[in-house]
């Protein structure tokens, strides 16, 4: 494993976290705080938000690396399995039914949605079939969740519910507290650990499914690990922050050339780089002066991600030519 890369990423994180705490609508000078509320801003507002960014970014980075390894495709994204749309559907239903107003209900609904998507995925994929069939099952779950979400929005009981749903779906870390951290962190860590267990099997998948099987990989077990690992990390992320795209796609890509390109040696660096990217992107959202509130994190990352995706496609086209 590339120890040097991991150390460099850790160092960058150590540098970025304190900076992110000081940056925002009001800048806080650590040596001479101008506000009496500075400590409140730091501990109750910015620290949980930074921790959440690290947790979510780390989870998405790890899940993205695992997904690309599993599907043997550099364009795979943790959203492909339909777990993120499933979680989002759960959240939308909580707005729709009005339960979202009660504490913890929104994330609970979202987690139930993620769990439902995972169960459906396991059910459809069944015992046989390869990765391709499984991906199609994921796409089906994804489009089903998307359609139901649109249905819920179009039938939303009040314009307020609708606007809340739409705003929430854009993904953001604004106004998140320690509650959200306690919901997301354990699940994400657990999910990342599950994906870590799958690391060796993902390495074998480099040679294709049949060769991986011949190397002793239990394909059913690997699939179950992937559903659980991606489900926990992505589900937890969507539950507390809405849909945040592109991190899981972009980060493994940026990091892969710096490793020996084995999927297992990509998991940890990709997680760390995901945490770093998310933290920086969230800071950017806070700092950018924007009329009518701050830039939503999901939008910012998608804006960043699209040109990246395009570059990737162009490079692949060049390689094919």
């Amino acid at each position: 494993m590339s120890i040097r890369l991991i150390l460099a990423l850790l160092a960058a994180l150590l540098l970025a976290v304190p900076l992110s705490l000081l940056a925002g609508r009001v800048w806080i000078d650590p040596l001479a705080p101008q506000f009496q509320t500075a400590s409140v801003i730091l501990v109750e507002l910015r620290l949980p938000r930074a921790v959440l960014a690290l947790v979510l970014g780390g989870g998405l980075g790890t899940a993205g690396a695992a997904m690309q390894g599993y599907l043997r495709n550099p364009l795979a994204d943790p959203g492909l399995f339909g777990i993120a749309p499933g979680a989002a559907l759960g959240a939308v239903l909580s707005f729709w039914t009005g339960y979202a107003a009660a504490p913890y209900m929104l994330p609970l609904f979202a987690l139930a949605g993620a769990g439902g998507a995972m169960a459906l995925l396991a059910l459809i994929a069944g015992r046989g079939g390869g990765v391709a069939l499984f991906t199609l099952a994921g796409l089906m779950v994804s489009s089903l969740a998307g359609a139901l979400m649109s249905l819920a929005i179009s039938l939303s009981p009040s314009p307020f519910a609708m606007s809340e749903i739409v705003t929430w779906m854009m993904g953001s870390l604004a106004d998140r507290s320690w509650h959200e951290v306690w919901i997301a962190a354990p699940l994400t860590v657990l999910g990342a650990m599950v994906l870590g267990i799958a690391g060796r099997d993902l390495d074998a998948m480099t040679l294709g499914e049949v060769a991986a099987h011949s190397l002793g990989v239990d394909l059913m077990r690997l699939r179950a690990l992937m559903i659980a690992g991606v489900g926990l990390t992505v589900g937890a992320g969507v539950a507390v922050a809405g849909i945040i795209g592109f991190v899981g796609l972009m980060v493994p890509h940026l990091v892969r050339p710096l490793t020996d390109r084995r999927p297992s040696s990509l998991l940890l660096p990709s997680g760390l780089a995901g945490a770093l990217l998310m933290l920086l992107a969230d800071c950017l959202c806070r700092i950018l002066p924007l009329a009518g509130g701050e830039l939503r994190l999901g939008i910012a990352l998608s804006l960043l991600g699209t040109p990246f995706f395009l570059r990737l496609l162009l490079r692949m086209r060049k390689e094919l030519a």
């Binding site: 074998a204 480099t206 040679l207 060769a211 390109r261 084995r262």
Partner: peptide, 20 residues
């Protein structure tokens, strides 16, 4: 027709044979 999904080095590729 064996596939190799990632552009690993020859040595890393061969080391996959030790996974069992």
């Amino acid at each position: 027709s064996p596939e190799v999904a990632w552009d690993v080095s020859v040595e890393v590729l061969i080391s996959l044979g030790r996974l069992p």
